Amino acid sequence: MLASQLQAQHQLRWLSHTDPRVNMLAAGVFALVAVLSHQLSALVLLLVIALLLNGLAGTRWRSVGKRLLAFETFMLLLVLLLPFSISGQTWFSLWGMTASIEGAKQALAIILRGNAVVLTLLALLAIREPINLGYGAAALGFSPKLIHLFMMTVRYIQVLGEEFARLRNAMKARAFAPASNWHTWRSYGWMMGMLLVRSMERAQRIVDAMRCRGFDGSLYLNQQLQWRRKDSIALALLLLLSLLPLGLQLFLEH
């Protein structure tokens, strides 16, 4: 029973066992298709494919929901203002401002396109270890400096988060209560400044430690990626799925 469950879980997460270049190339093509798609039917199909990829990747829907909630909060202001910013056929009027149907359609297209891209990135890239993505970027010929920056950011973003939490706890220990006043904004400013100073000091210590260990700015890989037949098959299937919305769009236009 347990063995069958593990095997099923392994089959669902086959996207995390392919060559990282497969995930990166498929994610890039999918994002390009999302930019080129402008019909609502194609964008809806794009979103359905993104949900399907998350199902195949075995992602946790609760985690996906939390990340999408943060994304929707960021997009809310743009989506609400867009119908009032584009001229066209009147949809409704509010406080003397007219919302157009064309603006509402464009806002809906932005919502579908943005959610499809975010879901695809969660399905293809978020399931991979950052070190594997670094290997994949190196194999694809990305700049070594860019790869170093990515790897160091992934490694130390949690350290900065822990430092931020310590500063917040120190403020709470001093009975700090946030409010909408000058004292609160000044306190937050001091906290962010202290976080920046400590980050710079830690970065300098890290650079000194790396130089003591002979770091010369070169990127050395512990293992070489090997492209296999199943990687070609996986990439072909993912590219076929990503190109379906463009095919539907061309079919509807003709």
Rank of each mutant, 00 (worst) to 15 (best):
M1E: 13
Q7Y: 09
Q9W: 15
H10T: 14
L12I: 11
W14N: 05
S16P: 03
R21D: 02
V29I: 13
Q39W: 13
L43Q: 01
I49Y: 01
L52K: 04
S63A: 06
K66V: 06
R67D: 08
L80D: 00
L82C: 05
F84A: 00
S85V: 11
S85N: 14
S85W: 15
I86P: 04
I86Y: 12
S87C: 02
G88M: 08
W91L: 04
L94I: 02
W95C: 06
W95K: 01
G96E: 14
M97R: 12
S100T: 12
E102C: 09
A104W: 04
L112F: 12
L121I: 12
A126F: 03
I127D: 07
I131Q: 14
L133Y: 08
G136A: 11
G136P: 02
G141R: 01
S143W: 05
P144M: 05
L149P: 05
L149N: 10
M151S: 15
V154W: 09
L160V: 15
E162R: 07
F164A: 05
A165L: 13
L167Q: 04
R168G: 11
M171A: 13
F176D: 07
A179N: 11
T184C: 06
G189I: 08
L196M: 01
L196F: 10
M200I: 10
M200P: 00
A203W: 04
Q204N: 09
I206E: 03
I206V: 15
Q224Y: 07
D231E: 06
A234M: 03
L238F: 08
L238I: 03
L243S: 01
P245K: 00
F251A: 08
